[in-house]
Simulated assay, not measured.
Amino acid sequence: MKQEILEAVKKAKEEAKPRNFTQSVDVVITIKDLDVRKPENRIDEEVFLPNGRGKPVKIAFIADGELALLAKNAGADLVINKADLEELGKDRKEAKKMANRHDFFVAQADMMPLVGRFLGPVLGPRKKMPKPVPASAKPEPLMEKLKGTVKVRIKDQPVVQALVGSQEMGDEDIADNIEAVLGVLDQKLEKGRSQIKSMYVKTTMGPVARVI
């Protein structure tokens, strides 16, 4: 299947019209013989892409004290303390803007109840609830891992759509990232990738290129 994936990646990139931004590359996979009404058939996994996402990732840290300082020094795009949390809780519009601007949230574990209260209604529906970490956590390795992480989900429909890179990345690198996504399906589906009904590769605004 590797060759077919490579060909589809190449075709999707070639057929994408030039845009004034770097387009993402997604893989879209339809699964057969899967009853998504059963909770055990739903998937919600984080996948580490071996060659990264190909685009910058914005990470917000919700922390106080030393962890907040370490996160700031490690290059977090935003550090939210307790006072900021309360302010965002009062300003839903600003909270939504902030949630849309950031890809991942990390929170000091003992602040999670406050996060749930003030930001839960905004982050929950966007599937961006923070990853809780202890106050003694080291932000740098955490952030490095998140920069190459994507979500693979099956919820209401037996379909996975996941970001696997950007059009500026090499074809082989994107193909390896697609293999990482398929690895999750191998683990989670009863019959692994033989349950794939169809698979396409596409850029953000380009046409789809069929793999199978």
Rank of each mutant, 00 (worst) to 15 (best):
M169D: 08
L189Y: 07
A68S: 06
K96G: 04
R53F: 08
Q157P: 02
E40P: 04
K82E: 09
P50E: 10
Q161L: 07
K96H: 05
K13C: 09
E87L: 15
V208R: 08
K72T: 06
E144I: 15
A137V: 15
I43K: 06
Q3W: 07
E7F: 15
Q167V: 02
R153P: 04
V159M: 11
V79P: 12
N100K: 10
K151A: 04
L78K: 15
E140S: 05
R92F: 15
K2S: 10
Q167G: 00
K151P: 03
L69M: 10
N41G: 09
F61I: 11
D110C: 08
P125Q: 14
D35L: 00
K10N: 12
Q23D: 02
T22L: 12
E45P: 01
V150C: 11
E190C: 12
V160H: 02
E172I: 13
L69E: 05
D186V: 02
G52T: 07
E14C: 03
R19L: 10
D171S: 09
T204L: 11
L163Y: 07
F118Y: 11
F61D: 00
E45A: 05
N81P: 04
L85M: 11
R153S: 10
F48I: 03
K151F: 06
T204A: 12
V9F: 08
Q187V: 06
K55L: 13
Q167E: 02
D103C: 11
V159A: 02
Q161M: 14
V208M: 15
P56H: 01
S166V: 09
L85D: 08
G75M: 08
L34A: 05
M199H: 07
I80E: 04
P134H: 03
E4P: 04
L6H: 13
R193F: 05
N51E: 14
A83Y: 01
Q161R: 05
D103T: 03
I178R: 03
V79F: 11
A71M: 15
A68R: 05
R126H: 05
K151C: 05
V184H: 00
I29S: 04
V57A: 06
E87W: 13
K191G: 09
F104H: 11
I212K: 03
L88M: 09
V201N: 04
V133K: 13
F21L: 07
P158V: 03
A63I: 12
P132K: 07
A109H: 00
A135N: 08
N73Y: 00
L70C: 11
I174D: 01
